[in-house]
Nucleic acid binder design. Structure first.
Lengths: 328, 328
DNA sequence: CTGAAAGCGCTTACAG
DNA sequence: CTGAAAGCGCTTACAG
């Protein structure tokens, strides 16, 4: 049994043409004569030929692979968000013959992999303000796409959800449910997501002619949500927009302990539609990001960037949706 | 600014030796003269040389990459288990210069990737009994490691937790907490995990001189757990081993609705130590698999298999541990 | 122990 | 439009 895969050489011999011609057909070069093309295509399918990517890589200096950079901390890998990103990226790149490589956020390694053509570009998820990697990559002019708007403005391609629109969605929903005395537990206010969700919520509340909402700053963590809820438990509010499901999961038991029933006394809307949203009691109404779609778009933008590095950077912002459950 | 990475050629010129010699030093061939080796090493570090993997791949017929095969269903990607696997594999293969490629379970693609040297081997997680992929890979003699013992015995390398020992751990704990009338909600009894957890639990219960436990078959799902709990709610039992946290999360509200307090009236032990275990009310005592360690071992076994395909297949079984929380 | 040389399987100017 | 040929950057028999 022959373990050696079919090569271009063999296809060429069978089709009675040169290797160059087969190569052109494989790569879809338009100038090949129609009849010849047909002969070659038949030879390809009869042999089951697939190009050897190492050989191709060697001459094109393309890896045929993009990287998904995880934070150094294993922490975020556990996040279901991560799986949704993968589910969005894969269907876009597989048909292109591009592989998805998982890599940790070690800066040297990422830059090295890119420089040495082991990776054609990278998708960065969960970068924080202090992370120097985005700027490093921009300065080296290496293809990169961020999964969120960077903390400080920079000439980089990113894909994000319209955070402010998400806050507004929450406000509109609470109002439609009869809330008149709104409050919010925000994310960390030094992050774009924290700021924008608050701004959107505030503006929509004002748009409904309601009083300025009570604002307590949180930190996106379960404990942070619980702490913020303690400060809110005795306030005169009847609806709370909590800027992450995880914080909401921390807040719910606190509200209950203070005798505030959800949704009867106070309605709650979260953000993310992550697993805590479903596992909470009651299950959370929440703002959902179309993560799979966003990830697919990141993959498309990255591939585009790899193929046409000269193109100007462009970013894309997606609209969030509301998932209604029993907490409101 | 020169974007071209340093090549073997340049290092050889700088060190005043042939390319072959540099190659030998890079690959740790022992026969190189000590002095020469030092000169070459200096040239390497002064230039920051890293081998071009496409070129190397082309001649060695090794991809320098292994695949992590996800189930076709995007479903399981969302599982935190997946992230723990990645966190375990990466530290093992990075130092070896091996990449981790994510791929879906399409059989043709997996076999093709392996045959065409785009992947040196694959790790299969979440395969079920009907999945033909493991057998396909064995028959083609392609390197593969399973994340669990296969449903039907086959000559394949796998890494698993000692499921029976996990069941015994649960039994011992319940008994030590004073339970005398045990019950269990099992996994699907056609799976090895379902069978073994039950067997281990039963044997340990018998070993303590207690009566045969009440057994209700479940299916590892939340709803299945709830359904099984309804059949158990009015039984005369004071301790339940539930073979997955997810089922336990479904069972807990049912028990509560039937007026059975956890842990006062009935103690509960789950399995997996997954996120539902923490998010349950009360949080679950549960059997934990050392997933990161197991994943690291899978990576090691796979790399070994790639390097020495002749070696006999061996598998590894890890011991589970008990995580005690408030449900017991 | 070391080097000259062949060759891995492609792509791509360059002629024609 | 097509082919002959060079070349991508390595590894590895093969001599010496």
């Amino acid at each position: 049994m022959d373990r050696r895969p079919v090569t271009l050489e063999e296809v060429a011999r069978i089709a009675g043409v040169s290797r160059a011609t087969v190569s052109r057909v494989v790569n879809g070069v338009a100038t090949v004569d129609g009849e010849l093309r047909r002969v070659v295509e038949k030879a390809i399918s009869s042999t089951g030929y697939t190009p050897n990517r190492a050989a191709r890589s060697l001459v094109t200096r393309r890896a045929g692979a993009i990287g998904l950079v995880l934070p150094d901390e294993g922490r975020t890998v556990h996040d279901p968000y991560f799986g949704r990103v993968v589910a969005g990226v894969l269907p876009v790149i597989r048909p292109l013959g591009v592989q998805l490589v998982l890599t940790t956020g070690d800066h040297r390694e990422v830059v090295d992999d890119l420089r040495q053509n082991r990776l054609d570009g990278v998708i960065l998820i969960h970068t924080h303000g202090a992370d120097p990697l985005p700027r490093l990559l921009i300065e080296a002019d290496l293809p990169v796409v961020l999964a969120a708007r960077p903390v400080r403005p920079m000439p980089i391609t990113y894909v994000d959800v319209d955070q402010a629109a998400g806050g507004a969605l929450a406000a509109d929903h609470l109002v439609s449910r009869g809330c008149r005395r709104p409050a919010t537990i925000t994310g960390p206010l030094e992050t774009p997501a924290g700021q924008d969700r608050l701004r959107g919520f505030r503006e929509a509340v004002a748009g409904h002619g309601l009083p300025e909402p009570v604002v307590v700053e949180g930190d996106f963590s379960r404990e942070g949500g619980a702490a913020a809820a303690r400060r809110l438990a005795d306030a005169d509010v009847d609806g709370v927009f909590i800027a992450s499901d995880l914080m909401a999961a921390g807040a719910l038991p606190v509200l209950r302990d203070h005798g505030r029933r959800v949704p009867e006394d106070v309605k709650v809307v979260g953000f993310d539609d992550s697993s805590p949203a479903v596992e909470c009691d009651p299950p959370l109404t929440t703002v959902r990001q179309p993560v799979e779609d966003m990830a697919a778009e990141m993959a498309r933008l990255l591939v585009q960037r790899v193929e046409r590095p000269d193109r100007p950077v462009s970013s894309v912002v997606f609209a969030p949706t509301l998932v209604v459950r029993r907490s409101s």
